[in-house]
């Protein structure tokens, strides 16, 4: 299935776009999604500390993906 992944901050700048679409298998997790994103976007291959969210709630890398969620990946936050 195809999922759209939102990118923020440095990841967005590195990719040159706000979202990427990747192809993943039926039993994929967020970790699998991230691997596909990094395969598509070479500038992200060195990133080691991604955070994930599903439907605007933090989620762990082993969180399963159904394809219907709003998925985002971003670096550790630095607001304030």
């Amino acid at each position: 299935m195809t999922v759209r992944v939102l990118l923020f901050a440095r990841y967005r700048e590195a990719a040159g776009k706000a979202a990427v679409e990747v192809e993943i298998g039926e039993d994929a997790t967020l970790a699998d999604v991230w691997e596909s994103v990094r395969a598509r976007v070479p500038a992200l291959r060195e990133e080691r500390r991604p955070l994930f969210s599903c439907d605007r709630v933090y989620a762990r890398p082993d969180h399963p993906v159904t394809g219907r969620e709003e998925i985002a990946v971003f670096p550790p936050v630095s607001g304030g």
Binding site: F8, R10, E13, Y58, P75, P76, V77, S78, G79, G80
Partner: peptide, 19 residues
């Protein structure tokens, strides 16, 4: 924990701050 990111702009360059 709030998903907000800061970028510092210097004379002639800039850098994302990572928490």
């Amino acid at each position: 924990i709030v998903p907000i990111w800061k970028k510092e702009h210097y004379a002639g360059s800039a850098r994302w701050i990572e928490g």
